[in-house]
């Protein structure tokens, strides 16, 4: 460790480490280091952000919790306290249970399908092939498009009979479903998942490529000298070193899958026959279309609790390994 301290380094590797290492050096020289004046400055800087979040994040979340204990149709005073019965209704509602199952199906499918696919393309693009930069840009294009815009284009592609997808399926000698891929209850969720994969694979590829940049060339060279083949090098060196990035991506993917709304709303609206409802589409349709605000509130709370518990569990059991090493 050099005397200069990490703060002067070009790369902010770990900011907390940097300040900690600085600590012994700075005992005296702090002109404005203490007292009410510093507190005032901190308040000046932090208050706008905290106020905005208090009004538009914390307060609505608290209201959702409160709302979930009342039967309320959106007008008049909210005074019909019903205790846990909204939760009871939601948790016994077949549609909501299916919605939870759909969310978890997407969570699992994303990891099982998108992870190997994204990893494969990233390893592929990590080679020194021609036009690599262009390829990287192209692969990321779907991620930049609005989910709605991507959804509308795919909706057209997936039109029964007249759509391009049905045409392609017929071209290879298969029969597309009569109601179209989005109109057939057994296929709709899978179809939504395919579109989601198209939309979000770019993010996985991009993150994995970034992680691969961190693998020192010397390691590859050393392995090659030892006679390892391409696949062996990827499997023994690149992928293990990529593990933290992979775990982070899994986390992001999981959270995104649990909150899924836009794409489903555009492609199917939750149909056909509730085959593609998610927790988010359920609560929006309960709230805005049926004005069952209490039920929407209960569904919101459940959505949050599910997400929070999964995030926490993931943090404790999976991501801890990464932070334990870094911090």
């Amino acid at each position: 460790m050099t005397d200069r301290g990490a703060a002067t380094d070009a790369v902010p590797v770990d900011p907390q480490e940097a300040t900690r290492r600085e600590e012994p050096r700075r005992v005296a020289p702090r002109p404005v280091g203490s007292g009410w004046r510093q507190r005032l400055e901190i308040a000046f800087f932090v208050t706008p952000a905290l106020a905005l979040m208090a009004v538009f994040v914390v307060w609505p979340v608290v209201s959702a919790v409160r709302m979930s204990f009342f039967r309320w149709k959106g007008f008049g005073p909210m005074d019909d306290f019903v205790g846990w019965s909204n939760y009871d209704l939601v948790l016994h509602d077949e549609v909501f249970r299916d919605a939870v199952a759909h969310n978890f199906t997407i969570v699992v499918l994303s990891i099982v399908v998108q992870l190997p696919l994204g990893l494969g393309v990233a390893l592929l693009l990590n080679r020194r092939i021609r036009a690599r930069g262009l390829l990287r840009t192209i692969v990321f294009v779907p991620y930049v498009l609005a989910e709605v815009i991507a959804g509308v284009v795919w909706y057209q592609l997936l039109q029964p009979e007249s759509g391009v997808v049905d045409g392609l399926v017929r071209a290879v000698g298969l029969t597309p479903p009569d109601q179209g891929f989005l109109g057939t209850p057994d296929l709709a969720l899978w179809t939504v998942f395919v579109v989601l994969t198209w939309k979000y694979l770019g993010l996985a590829i991009l993150l994995f490529l970034a992680g691969l940049q961190g693998v020192p060339d010397e390691l590859y060279e050393a392995a090659q000298l030892d006679g390892a083949g391409w696949w062996q090098v990827q499997r023994r060196i690149a992928i293990p070193l990529l593990a933290p990035t992979i775990r982070t991506w899994c986390f992001l993917s999981m959270i995104g899958s649990l909150q899924l709304f836009d794409m489903v709303w555009i492609l199917t609206g939750g149909g056909p026959a509730n085959a593609t409802t998610t927790m988010a589409t359920y609560l929006v349709s309960q709230g805005t279309q049926r004005h069952n605000y209490g039920i929407a509130g209960a569904a919101s709370v459940i959505l949050f609790v599910v997400g929070f518990v999964m995030a926490l569990a993931y943090q404790v059991f999976v991501l801890r390994r990464d932070t334990a090493v870094e911090r």
């Binding site: 979040m53 009004v55 994040v57 609505p60 209201s63 959270i255 909150q259 709230g287």
Partner: peptide, 23 residues
């Protein structure tokens, strides 16, 4: 204080959307 912001990452707009609409 920093944790407040980190925790904020865990609140998706979807959770608060109905009260937000009313607010």
């Amino acid at each position: 204080l920093f944790m407040v912001f980190v925790l904020g990452l865990l609140f998706p707009a979807a959770v608060a959307i109905i009260p937000l609409f009313i607010l």
